[in-house]
Nucleic acid binder design. Structure first.
Length: 678
DNA sequence: GAGCACTGC
């Protein structure tokens, strides 16, 4: 019964950019058209906005018309875990199942949570997980249809998945691939699947390959307004716009897009200051921050209805563009910028840059005002600036460290990754750098072949290559239990310590309590051990020690999963292997063995502290700042290795540091330090 | 003395 509501065709003209004017299908025909194309062609591209119901309806259409009848499964991939679980629940409900029956005919599978059974016929999952499934089932034979949802976001995993599905189609012409996309990138997707040397896929010519179906979304008209003159200070303009909306527009909450935490706090302070200017008015404003770094408790506020006579102003990063949906938004203010991660292959440094948004992004942001009723969007740039914006955001694959992806592809039998059929080929510098990294770690040999067992084992582990190498070396340093813990804690990425009620001093104090002189890795190990010895579920103890309970629980899951992976590789947690320097290692204490082991994976991330407390790279060409979360923010050190490096605005930060001896660098990575020089 | 957009295995 929800079916009809969901694909109801809206009459409004709305954003011309969103929809192809001709060919919009009425509800009754969508089902027929979809089933016809799926029956006839290997590939179907669905163009339709979020809220069109495509994600929930299409798998049901396929299920009811027999695509799951022979025991095969319809899979729907999502870029985010939250989407996979919530859509699965919704579909199960629409099909008449009770919540407790989720995991039977309809289920989902995400990391750490497999809610499926032998009966499951419709399965929602993250795209990254489906990629992992290909290790055991390279042709994905259990699936009759694979629908890649939100493909327009161009996430690393979904891009790779599309390339691999194209390969699979050559061997399994009976497989059906449905690519769903919110924007007008549809033709690019279809052309991609159709292209190869002879224009044939699965024995079909281009015209026989697939079709594009466009469906109308269930959104309301959004009136878009531009600035007449560009602004030099969009935070100030945004705050003024908030005030203007508040004094002149009807009821309805405001969603303001800015680029980061600092701007968000700045804007909230300004708004708070100016509320007073209104005096005791009957309508007031409630500014609320929203960014991923907030703990879930604080994020929760944005979903709660505002008190009477109060207008919520949610000041958010890009998280509200696709990942988080808030009801009741009638006004969107779009600053026109977003922080994007970029990878510099020559220095091996990740950067966070403020970039203009794409037209697709701006459209998506504006659409957030029209989810439940007609709305307005105020773009803090001119109409001609909008016209100059890129159509779509640069795909992640063209601006990331590709070492993990390349390793995974090689393990799937892709021997020549340079000639791999990428949807958008990454710059060759990125590929070369990734190969260099993998070679220096010993994951590939001089002929660019995956090594055995090291390379294949590294690829099996759900860890970045440097950490995977470190973990696999741990038995040689008789520190596998400790390294399992450290690797698990590293995946939490700075979320371990939290300040409750904004009490920074208490947080710093807690950090000192757990600090280990040799560095952050052993400090995190110490935190985990304390957590376990306090009974593993003492949320109160976490609070008292400024620790993030949920993060530590996650570390336990990750640790268990890693331990299982190693066991499958024949490496028990208690394993110790004798390497060439076994006798020497036996005389060392645990901390030294851990530090040496870390060096075998992170030698390329070496740095030396200068007298002013900043660090420098071995070549001395980049100044590195200790991230304030590190224990070396206060303390002296000489040589260290670090886990992560990231450049923001004007400084390059390193985080998670551990002291090493300079000799270890040449001992464990002789060729790397010989060729690179010092 | 001072901080990182967002995902995922």
């Amino acid at each position: 019964m929800a079916e009809k509501d969901d694909i109801e065709v809206s009459e409004a003209g709305l954003f011309p950019a969103l929809y192809k004017p001709p060919g919009l299908l009425p509800i009754a025909q969508l089902k027929d058209a979809l089933l016809y194309t799926a029956e006839t062609y290997p590939v179907t591209i669905i163009v339709g906005e979020t809220g069109s119901g495509k994600t929930t309806q299409i798998p049901q259409f396929l299920h009811k018309s027999g695509w799951t009848s022979d025991g095969s499964v319809v899979a729907v991939t999502q870029p985010r875990r939250i989407a996979a679980t919530s859509v699965a629940a919704r579909v199960a409900e629409e099909m008449g199942f009770f919540p407790g029956q989720l995991g039977q005919e309809v289920g989902y599978s995400i990391r750490f949570e497999d809610v499926t059974s032998a009966k499951t016929q419709i399965k929602f999952m993250t795209d990254g997980l489906l990629l992992r499934e290909m290790l055991v089932d390279p042709l994905l034979k259990r699936y009759s249809v694979i629908m890649v949802d939100e493909a327009h976001e161009r996430s690393l995993s979904s891009d790779i998945l599309l390339s691999l599905l194209k390969k699979i189609l050559r061997k399994r012409p009976e497989l059906r691939v449905i690519v769903s996309s919110a924007t007008i990138e549809a033709q690019k997707f279809l052309d991609f699947f159709a292209s190869d040397e002879d224009g044939k896929v699965g024995g079909k010519t281009k015209n026989e390959l697939g079709r594009i179906i466009t469906i109308q979304g269930r959104v309301h008209p959004v009136d878009i307004q531009y600035l007449v003159e560009p602004t030099a200070d969009y935070v100030e303009t945004a705050v003024q716009t908030v005030m203007d909306i508040h004094s002149t527009e009807d009821k309805g909450d405001i969603l303001l897009f800015l680029t980061g935490r600092e701007e968000i706090n700045d804007a909230i302070d300004k708004i708070t200051d100016r509320i007073v200017d209104f005096g005791p008015s009957s309508q007031t404003l409630q500014p609320l921050p929203l960014y991923a770094g907030l703990d879930t408790e604080q994020q929760q506020f944005v979903f709660e209805p505002a008190p009477e006579n109060t207008r919520k102003v949610i000041v958010s990063t890009n998280i509200a563009e696709a990942s988080v949906t808030i009801d009741g938004i009638a006004y969107v203010i779009d600053c026109g910028f977003v922080k994007l991660r970029n990878y510099d292959p020559s220095l091996g440094i990740e950067r966070l840059n403020v970039c203009p948004v794409s037209k697709a992004s701006a459209t998506q942001r504006a659409g957030r005002a029209g989810r439940t009723r007609p709305g307005k969007c105020f773009r803090l740039y001119t109409e001609s600036a909008f016209a100059d914006l890129p159509e779509t955001t640069f795909p992640e694959i063209q601006r990331s460290d590709l070492a993990p992806v390349i390793l995974q592809l090689m393990n799937l039998g892709i021997t020549n990754v340079v000639r791999f059929d990428f949807l958008s080929p990454p710059p060759s510098k990125l590929l070369i750098r990734a190969m260099d990294t993998l070679h220096s770690l010993g994951a590939i040999d001089e002929y660019a072949r995956l090594t055995r067992p090291l390379g294949t084992r590294m690829a099996e582990l759900p860890l970045e290559p440097m950490l995977a190498k470190t973990l696999l070396n741990a038995p040689y340093f008789a520190c596998l239990p400790e390294m399992l813990t450290i690797a698990s804690m590293m995946t939490l990425q700075g979320t371990v310590f939290v300040s409750h009620d904004g009490n920074k001093k208490q947080e710093d104090k807690a950090k000192r309590r757990f600090a280990v002189a040799e560095g952050d890795h052993m400090t995190l190990y110490n935190v985990y051990e304390s957590f376990i010895s306090h009974g593993k579920k003492d949320a109160q103890w976490c609070r008292e020690n400024s620790l993030n309970f949920k993060a530590l629980v996650k570390a336990m899951s990750v640790r268990k999963q890693l331990r299982n992976h190693l066991e499958r590789l024949g490496i028990a947690e208690t394993a110790t292997f004798d390497g060439p320097d076994a006798a020497k290692l036996r005389g060392m204490n645990l901390v030294e063995r851990v530090r040496r082991c870390l060096t075998t994976g992170f030698f390329a991330h070496a740095a030396r502290m200068k007298s002013d407390g900043t660090f420098t790279t071995p070549k001395g060409d980049v100044t590195l700042w200790v991230h304030p979360s590190s224990i070396f923010f206060h303390r002296k050190a000489d040589w260290v290795i670090y886990h992560e490096i990231m450049e923001t605005r004007d400084k390059t930060y390193i985080r998670d540091l551990t002291t090493v001896e300079i000799d270890w660098l040449t001992e464990y990575a002789p060729s790397y330090y010989r060729t690179k020089g010092k």
